[in-house]
């Protein structure tokens, strides 16, 4: 397939990408930009390991063709920390023991970020719904929910 050229804005930087248009956003982010935090766990949008934020919304990037992301703001796990300063959710995941094998964690944290941006004082049930598209097999979700809850604002 003939390659196409588009610009992708990823983590605040603009990249000119030259690639086959039938490749997924996940493939291009991983293989062309070498941002390998996003993972492929199923390739069918069922596990959430490939979760990225596109214009602030959760996207399973294994199902999105990369040219569709042109003109939008793509955020990956690598862009979440502010320099050396971790995002509060990243710190909470470590401190609460929410991280085990880690494979789902980049997607899970981004889903948690999107959940709290949408519902800043999310309850445990709202947190569970917010991350229901992200499978984790190590934790039973207990400490993941604990970590996200610890960062949520107290209900007004």
């Amino acid at each position: 397939m003939a390659r196409q050229t588009h610009r992708l804005d990823v983590n605040g930087r603009s990249h000119e990408i030259h690639a086959e248009p039938n490749r997924t956003l996940l493939e291009v982010v991983r293989d062309e930009l070498r941002l390998t935090g996003a993972k492929e766990g199923c390739g069918t949008g069922d596990c959430g390991a490939c979760t990225l934020l596109v214009d602030g919304r959760v996207v399973t990037s294994c199902l999105m063709l990369w040219p569709e992301a042109e003109g939008r703001e793509v955020r990956t796990i690598e862009g979440l920390a502010d320099g050396g300063e971790l995002h509060p959710l990243q710190r909470a995941f470590v401190e609460h023991g929410a991280v085990q094998c880690g494979f789902c964690i980049p997607g899970m944290i981004l889903a948690g970020v999107a959940t709290l941006e949408r519902v800043p004082s999310a309850t445990r049930a709202e947190i569970r719904d917010g991350i229901a598209g992200n499978l984790c097999r190590c934790t039973g979700y207990q400490k993941i929910v604990d970590a996200i809850e610890s960062v949520a604002e107290a209900p007004a």
Binding site: L35, T36, G37, A38, K39, T76, I77, E78, L80, A81, L86, Q90, R91, F93, V94, E95, G97, V99, Q100, G102, F103, I105, P106, I109
Partner: peptide, 16 residues
């Protein structure tokens, strides 16, 4: 004790 490799995993740096 939080896991010693936790920071690498929450920043996406761990190599699988």
């Amino acid at each position: 004790e939080p896991r010693v490799e936790g920071l690498h995993k929450v920043t996406g740096r761990t190599v699988y």
